[in-house]
C-alpha cells in the first residue's frame, strides 16, 4: 500500500539544522492498522505529513499503491490526496465558518460529484460516526469528541484507501478516545481501510496490528500484535 524508503527530513532555519527524520524506511501493507509512538518532538507528525504528501521529504522515496511520488504537480498531488488519503488531526482542523455537513462534504467538493450525491454521502458518513443529528451545527457548537467525529466523517466520506490520523484521541478523555478508536477499528475491519495512527497511548497502540517506535527521527523498534 505505502512504502517509504530512506526518508530524510531536515528543517533548516538561519541558525540551526534539525534532522527531524533520519533514514526512515517503512512498509505499510494494504488493510494494515499501524500505530506510531515516540516522545514529543521525535518526528511523528513530520513522518505522517510526508506519508500524506502534505510535506516533502528532503531526500528519499515515497511509493503509494505502486506509484512513486516524484515530481508531481500541485494539481496532481491535490488530486492524489483527494482520492486516496483521508486525514484526521489532533486539533480537528474543521472550518469554523461552515456547518458540520459542509465540513464533511469538503473532499467531495473537489471531485465531480453532484450536490445531491455529496449531501447523501456526507449524511451517511455522519451516520457512521453517530452524529447525524448535528448536521446543521457549527463546529464551535460541538464538544471535542464530537468535533473529532466530524473530522473522521470528513476523512472517510470520499472512501480513501488510506487514513492518516495524528493523535486523534490526544485531546479527548479516555471514554471518548475509546469511542473514536472503535470507529477506526470498525473502518479498518469492515472497509479494509489502511490506517496509520500516531498516538501517545500504549493501550490504543496495542489494539492496532503493529506498533513502530520513533526516537530522535529514527525508527527504533517494531512490535507486531496481530496481522492484517
Amino acid at each position: 500500500m505505502l512504502s517509504l524508503s530512506q526518508i530524510e527530513k531536515i528543517y533548516r532555519t538561519d541558525t540551526v539544522e534539525t534532522l527531524a527524520l533520519n533514514n526512515i524506511s517503512l512498509e505499510v501493507a494494504k488493510g494494515e492498522f499501524l500505530s506510531i509512538m515516540g516522545p514529543s518532538g521525535c518526528g511523528k507528525s513530520t513522518l505522517l505529513n510526508i506519508m500524506g504528501l502534505l510535506d516533502e521529504p528532503t531526500s528519499g522515496q515515497i511509493t503509494i499503491e505502486n506509484q512513486v511520488i516524484h515530481g508531481y504537480s500541485d494539481k496532481a498531488l491535490s488530486q492524489f490526496r483527494n482520492e486516496k488519503i483521508g486525514f484526521i488531526f489532533q486539533s480537528y482542523h474543521l472550518i469554523n465558518d461552515l456547518p458540520v455537513l459542509d465540513n464533511v462534504e469538503l473532499p467531495l467538493l473537489y471531485r465531480k460529484v453532484s450536490s445531491k450525491e455529496r449531501r447523501k454521502l456526507a449524511t451517511e458518513a455522519l451516520e457512521k460516526v453517530g452524529l447525524s443529528n448535528r448536521m446543521k451545527h457549527y463546529p464551535t457548537q460541538l464538544s471535542g469528541g464530537q468535533k473529532q467525529r466530524v473530522a473522521i466523517a470528513r476523512a472517510i466520506v470520499g472512501r480513501p484507501d488510506l487514513i492518516l490520523a495524528d493523535e486523534p484521541t490526544g485531546n479527548l478523555d479516555s471514554a471518548m478516545g475509546h469511542e473514536i478508536m472503535e470507529i477506526l477499528e470498525q473502518l479498518n475491519t469492515a472497509d479494509r481501510t489502511t490506517i496509520v495512527m500516531v498516538t501517545h497511548d500504549e493501550g490504543m497502540a496495542k489494539r492496532t496490528h503493529r506498533l513502530v517506535r520513533l526516537f530522535d527521527g529514527a525508527l527504533v523498534s517494531s512490535n507486531q500484535f496481530y496481522t492484517a
Binding site: L54, D74, S78, R81, H93, Y110, R111
Partner: peptide, 16 residues
C-alpha cells in the same frame, strides 16, 4: 490560512 491548508489537505489545488 488554516482553512487554505485544510482545503488543500482534502484535495483543493492551488489553482482551484
Amino acid at each position: 490560512s488554516s482553512e487554505i491548508g485544510i482545503r488543500k489537505a482534502f484535495g483543493a489545488s492551488s489553482r482551484t
